[in-house]
Design a protein around this nucleic acid. Structure first.
Length: 493
RNA sequence: GGUCCUGUGGCCGAGUGGCUAGGCACGGCUCUGCAAAAGCUGCUACAGCGGUUCGAAUCCGCUCGGGACCUCCA
């Protein structure tokens, strides 16, 4: 078993041994949502992927401070043709306070994401609550000579930065290429002419009159540039250099690249040692896009209320589905794929129930440690959850065989297996059986009915026994006749 | 157009030089009054073309398809 955790670091393009700055403490920052709409499928992957990362880090003994921000300032709508704040724009359309909108959508985000049984952030800072920190940082950048002020806006001097540092390292870009390509397909937006170089990015933007979200600053009324909030908040809560910075691959450039540049000149050190980026999701092989009319909100997935969905899928099914793919691969959603995950997960939980009823014998005729180690190996190898889950199914297989008397397990292995399997499924993968009714009254009741049915069966009154079985099924209880006993599982329609 | 990623069996998805995951679906069998559940079992893939190699899904090149990003805004 390889005890060393390896993480693929986007910044170096290699898998590296994970060594925190200050063991056993780990500081981790994840770019959170911009709250201007309800969360969709794409929003779920980051929280799920990083949830397992956090849970695993904790499992192997680290103490994790997990910071995930909420961006509630500064973002523009894609189709905005002027420098209008994304949240501000919505606010004007709906005649609401901008913060009301931000609150509404961050509540929506929390409501849906929390269904995924993910560990909540230790700190969840809002960009709007850290304007002072952002201004302070911008002042430092100006003082260090890498920022300049034009007409109440402040820009970061990328050309100057690249003379001393490597702008583009994280995203694998070469500044010369960026400059060369800068002339083409450029959208005409205000402020462009203010910059010394097209590659420069805004640290602070002057607010035009119709801007609703604006703050006072040394440069007049305005709002912070997109990248600065993550730099300011991560430094505030995790330090100038921390262990892990995560996000989606779409944020690699320019967001994370610019974060590195800002933090580097501000703090004389680069912000994060390990950069982890998860891949994007597709739907039926296509990207999610408004124009394709294939965007699915999390609420729609959970209720099944969407033209592309044949049925509803539970949050835990979604989580399991996401974890069946490696986080650095694209993940394709379809009804077939979701249904496959749902059934697989159900089987896994069924065998988990069986595990508690298993009887041990003298010895095991399989190598439990081999299976156990293969799961740790998988997780240590850049959090390879698909392999871990595959091995879990191997164990499920063995559990079923033991139950049917085709395989044996020793007492030691059995008690170890119980602990281990529960740890992996509940503590590390963060799954839960959302088909389980927590009510303690249900079980004895169902067992009474099962007894009645078995009596009917003994008397060969199959009409009655089948009727009981069908009625239970309709009520959401699936009867399973085993070799020695009859069990049931709760299903949802 | 530029940079990068990617193409695996009916579907989803691991695997990066030889040992050919896993889930779901489908077929057969066992168990069973029947069904379900469970077990056993069958289906054996690596976009195409060329190259490197004793040997490639895995490395290289080209072609075709999919995707991400392309700076001021988000």
């Amino acid at each position: 078993m390889d005890l060393q955790l390896k993480i693929y670091n986007t910044n170096t393009g290699k898998k590296e041994n994970f060594n925190p700055i200050n063991t056993p403490f780990v500081g981790m920052y994840l770019c959170g949502p911009t709250v201007y709409g309800h969360p969709h499928l794409g929003h779920s992957r980051g929280p799920v992927v990083f949830d397992v990362i956090i849970r695993y880090l904790k499992h192997i003994g680290y103490k994790v401070r997990f910071v995930r921000n909420i961006t509630d300032v500064g973002h523009l709508l894609n189709d905005a043709d002027e420098g209008e704040d994304k949240i501000g724009r919505k606010a004007k359309l709906e005649q609401l306070e901008p913060m009301e909108i931000a609150q509404y959508y961050s509540d929506s985000y929390h409501e849906q994401i929390n269904k995924l049984n993910v560990i909540k952030p230790s700190i969840e800072p809002r960009a709007s609550g850290h304007i002072i920190e952002q201004i302070e940082m911008i002042l430092k950048i100006i003082n260090s000579g890498y920022g300049y002020v034009v007409n109440g806006s402040v820009y970061f001097d990328v050309i100057k930065y690249s003379e001393n540092y490597n702008y583009g390292k994280l995203s694998g870009r070469i500044l010369e290429d960026l400059i060369a390509g800068a002339g083409e397909s450029r959208r005409e937006l205000e402020g462009q002419e203010e910059k010394r170089n097209p590659n420069d990015f805004a640290l602070w933007k002057r607010a035009s009159e119709e801007h609703i979200m604006q703050w006072n600053s040394p440069w007049g009324l305005g709002f912070p540039g997109w990248h600065i909030e993550c730099s300011a908040m991560s430094a505030k809560y995790l330090g100038k250099t921390f262990d892990i910075h995560g996000g989606g691959m779409d944020l690699l450039f320019p967001h994370h690249e610019s974060e590195i540049a800002q933090s580097t000149v501000c703090h004389n050190t680069q912000p994060a040692n390990y950069w982890i980026h998860h891949n994007m999701v597709t739907i039926n092989g296509q990207k999610m896009a408004k124009s394709l009319n294939n965007g699915i909100l999390l609420s729609e997935l959970f209720t099944g209320n969407h033209h592309l969905l044949e049925k509803a899928y539970s949050p835990i099914t979604l989580k399991f589905f996401i974890l069946q793919a490696h986080y650095r691969s694209t993940l394709d959603f379809s009804n077939d794929a979701l249904k496959a995950a749902e059934k697989g997960l159900k089987r896994l939980f069924n065998t988990l129930d069986l595990l508690n009823k298993l009887k041990a014998t003298e010895k095991s005729d399989f190598d439990f440690n081999l299976l156990k180690n293969s799961i740790y190996d998988a997780l240590n190898d850049d959090f390879n959850t698909p392999i871990a889950i595959a091995q879990l199914f191997e164990i499920a297989n063995i559990i079923n065989k033991i139950n049917d008397g085709f395989t044996t397990i020793s007492n030691t292995d059995l008690s170890e297996m119980k602990i281990f399997v529960n740890t992996i499924i509940y503590d590390i993968l963060g799954l839960k059986n959302d088909n389980h009714d927590s009510s303690e009254y249900i079980e004895p009741l169902i067992n009474i009915i099962i007894d009645l049915r078995n009596e009917a069966k003994l008397q060969k009154d199959y009409k009655k026994s089948d009727e009981l079985r069908d009625k239970l099924l309709n009520a959401g209880f699936e009867i399973k006749d085993g070799k020695n006993e009859t069990t049931y599982s709760i299903i949802k329609n």
